[in-house]
Design a protein around this nucleic acid. Sequence first.
DNA 1: TATTGCGGGCTTC
DNA 2: GAAGCCCGCAATA
Length: 486
Amino acid sequence: MATDAFEEVDCTCSYGMKLNWDINDPKMPQEPKQFDHFREWPDGYVRFIYRGDEKNAQRHLSGWAMRNTNNHNCLILKKSCLGVVVCAGSCYLPDGSKLQLRPAICDKARQKQQKKACPNCNSALELIPCRGHSGYPVTNFWRLDGKAIYFQAKGVHDHPRPESKSETEARRSAIKRQISSHQIQKKRNMESQIEQYQDASGHFTNTLSSSENLEGFNIFTDTSFPILAQPYSSFQKSDSYKALYNSACFQEDIIPPFQKCPNPRIYVPRPTCGYEITVPNYINSSPFPNLYKDSSKKHSDTDWTYLNGQCSVNSLSTHDRNLDVSSKHHGRKATLGKTVYGQRNDLGQFQASTTHPYYNSEYSCRYLGNASPAAPALQTVITTTTKVSYQAYKSPVVKYSNNVCDVKNLQSCSHMLDCTPRTVYPEVKLQDDCQESKSILPYIDESLPTKGERVEAWDVYRCGLAPENNYTDQVDQLFTCENEDF
DNA sequence: TATTGCGGGCTTC
DNA sequence: GAAGCCCGCAATA
């Protein structure tokens, strides 16, 4: 039974969770003998102990958009989640995914970001705040103590994952590259035309400089502008695509950034890091579609379930999988033309659907009040904000594929999933995130460039994947690549 | 220009 | 008193 397997792998889970400590303890566990691999998407009431030289931990990185919060304790860095920026019109990208942007950390930048329109449908952008910690944003705590970096998360994100920081940065840099390369090309063309003209007429009468003619490109210099994650040619033919770029006065000079796929990490269906478990009735929580999703069938309700039948477990908790489910239902709902956003009470807790335990009417990923302390992965008794005791949450039976995991402790289960070697679950697939994939390997960070630096090379590799390859082939290639490169 | 970390100060419970 | 939040500042990329 799967339970045995769960118990077997449970010991491989977060080392930080094995020890009894709290971020506010006067003394942290002395000289940890083990360390956890860095987790980009911590979720739930979890604790990790990272090596002191873990770069990502040193930078207090997170896939979630976390802003600094003053906790009046200089020893402990506290961050709270900003949520995710989505299209207020709840539109679907041509591939069936939804726009889920990373909120700007800076307040000003975030306000500016929200004033922008959805690049897909021109609706307003909406910030979905995180209320996963008793109605408040999920908080992350970082503490450097000795040679270890202690991490503690409190709350379960009740919203989809935004674009990760590295993806945002990569997208921006890719756009800048596109702009600069296109400008250079344009300038060359202009110069060559000027030369031809001069040669032909003997004198130059054009008073416009080439740089002036390039002003039209400035519209793209705002790299915070959300770029659609569309590698598909179909999208480039779509009305929305035309509307977007025609409105930008680019009828003649449309840069085909998505077609060339300079950085598939940006434009290709979003990698969700780490493992993917193929689980019917679960979908990927990724804000971007999966590589192998058959978009031609996306409008079929039944097929939708299967085609998206994946469970991203790169994050730590089952919560993400809950999000996946609700996301899918969200998709179904929108497909049916119903209102996407529903009622929400003051505490950010939502009505559960009668048809699905995780469905929520307010937003796709606001599910069943898991945002509330009513049913987190672990039922948390908060004595104070910083002192948290854990009680086993008597959860409903959670189904994974054909196996049923009667989860005594969802958190440990999620850890197990997160840490499960591929061999344990035949259906576990490796997706295409360097970060989490790397985590399956021994500590080799130090000799490697940072994630951001790795993106390009990685993306070049992914670009080279033949589109006709089936997903399994791609996964195998990716896995091979990661083992070689990371 | 945006991010990040720090810290003062206010409010709520 | 703990915690959440807002704000400003400075360093940095």
